[in-house]
Design a protein around this nucleic acid. Structure first.
Lengths: 330, 330
DNA sequence: CAAGATGAATTACATTTGTCAAAGGACATG
DNA sequence: CATGTCCTTTGACAAATGTAATTCATCTTG
């Protein structure tokens, strides 16, 4: 029956999108209810049977992309179209997720480009092993990965787990991707920050953990994001960091984090107790891997610039406004 | 200003399709009227800035395509999803164009696949020289070629002109394609059927005609369609054939035509005065070229089968129902 | 066999979208 | 400077779409 369902979906999508019929006509043609056709069409879009592509070439971002690519020695740089919101007249209202409408669009857009990149990688590299960070950008990426089959792919978290069980924690992320693509998911079954250095040693010595870290070291692609280190940072919001932690990290020169590793303005991990207790794939390992950074909001420009300066990043997928802001920096 | 306009279009399309905003929100965000956004979005789709793709893999036509491909020794065969209309309950009403709604969809769908094929060819082959037949299917193809740039491509008609100046005559077709892609258009500036054999010789000896025919002989791709030989045939409707012509062609064993050349059930040109006076690139030349046949309606199964049997066709793009009907034939 | 659960059809409604006519500039042309 | 053309805005409306509530039929399960 799954076969029939898919076929029906394609037929409806075909009549509607290609044939130019409306939903009522499509329904009549297929002997279905209009409501059902409506649902079929929504599902078709959802599952990737129907896909909508916007030509990025015409968005005028190519020069900016090229500038960033050269400046940071990247293999590639993709920017979403800039919307030049000026920042003043845009509705700044933040809802319960703490995101303004503008930010929401940015997350979706960068997530989509990231998904396209990942999809292409999965198609090219067989079998692929993909290391993953965490965050809202990465989560958005998973939402656009429907309908992609990669049974031999392996997805592995590059860091330990958060306690808060939100939809974008490392566990959920890896799990979702594995499920959607039919691949295998691995994650580090340990907290993201150990309580003490001794605890960290114990946790790292676990067979499962060692195995996962070994796999992460062979990743054919790593997709990570970056966090800025402010009160509004997700880590702070999720309660992973206290206000005191934040202050002491600032004092140590930290400007941002990736995978829970805090780094300074030059992208070097800072000397700090938290950093030493963090359980994640270290920078030295990432440096040898194919790392793609996703940046979805202009607020993260400083942290992104710092991470890019570290030299561990090979590819950049970035929101258009953030790209402009980054390109304007000295 | 063209630059700005395109950019605006991309921004609107991006916010709407990727960002998930509705037209009102998009308009507000860009400081435009909703009506303008509506137009921008329509234009974006029209011009190919935004494109909608339906995954044909899931339509269940692969086995049929493969069967046809093998049977007729083709390089490739693409079928649109079959809609299995049974033929009874489908609204058979024909409007002023003489097309049922079902046929309209078929034309659009095959036109789209043809356009995709042509687009891919233009991108791959540089410079491309494309020979073209005529008809509603080919016309539909041109409608889907917006936003494709191929300044070095040459489009050439494989046959003389029809007198009736409809949108799908050879002249219009070549002209439209050349204009849309920025390429060059050539056509045979002579009637499609000469009045006498002597006239034909005179017409063929014209320098322009000889030049055009020479170019046609070097085509990197030919896209043609097929006509069945009935009262309802387009040639008959356009007044190019009289009822008497039709009868005598039938008597000579003709079952269909392509580019105005009438052929029998084995795809061999028939011995007939009309065939001798037709001005078109002959089968012997087509046989050496890369010929793709587009078939957009189940009514044309017999003629299509005959033409495919001739061996001059290398690739087939066909309506799903026609494909099924063709595959069922002995 | 009865009861519940599932999924689709039907209906109704709110929102979104497409389109048109009228009115208001901007701009080129005479 | 007047005039006409072209494009945009505005407001309004009709059509299409998304969605929820309800009913109905079918299938599962006890």
């Amino acid at each position: 029956m799954d076969e029939t369902d898919d076929t029906l979906m394609v037929k409806a999508a075909w009549l509607y999108h290609v044939g130019g019929l409306n939903q009522a006509e499509t329904a009549e043609r297929l002997g279905l209810t209009r409501a059902r056709v409506n649902r079929l069409l929504a599902d078709a879009l959802e599952e990737g049977v129907v896909s909508i592509t916007v030509d990025r070439q015409l968005a005028g971002m190519v020069p900016v992309e090229e500038a960033l690519r050269r400046r940071f020695g990247l293999d590639f740089c993709q920017a979403t179209p800039a919307l030049e919101l000026g920042g003043s007249d845009a509705p700044a209202g933040a809802d319960k997720t703490g995101l303004s409408p503008a930010q929401k669009v940015a997350f979706r857009a960068v997530g989509l480009l990231g998904a396209n990149h990942l999809r292409a990688h999965l198609a090219r590299e067989e079998p692929a092993t993909v290391g993953l960070g965490w965050g809202r950008t990465l989560e958005q990426m998973t939402l656009h990965m429907a309908g992609v089959s990669a049974p031999n792919a392996r997805f592995i978290s590059l860091m330990g787990s958060l306690t808060a069980n939100s939809a974008f924690n490392p566990f959920e992320l890896v799990h979702t991707l594995a499920k959607r693509t039919g691949g295998e998911g691995y994650f580090l079954p340990v907290p993201f920050i150990a309580d003490t250095l001794e605890d960290k040693q114990v946790l790292l010595s676990q067979r499962q953990v060692a195995k996962a870290l070994a796999i992460a070291g062979t990743a054919t692609l790593c997709m990570i994001s970056v966090g800025e280190l402010e009160e509004s940072a997700l880590l702070r919001r999720q309660g992973m960091l206290s206000a005191a932690d934040l202050d002491s990290l600032h004092a140590a020169g930290a400007v941002g984090d990736t995978n829970g590793i805090f780094f300074d303005a030059h992208g070097r991990p800072v000397e700090h107790p938290l950093n030493q207790r963090t359980i994640a794939v270290p920078f030295e390992v990432l440096r040898g891997l194919n790392v793609v950074l996703m940046v979805a909001s202009p607020e993260k420009t400083r942290a992104a610039a710092a991470l890019l300066a570290s030299g561990i990043v090979n590819g950049l997928i970035i929101d258009g406004d953030a790209a402009l802001s980054l390109a304007r920096q000295p």
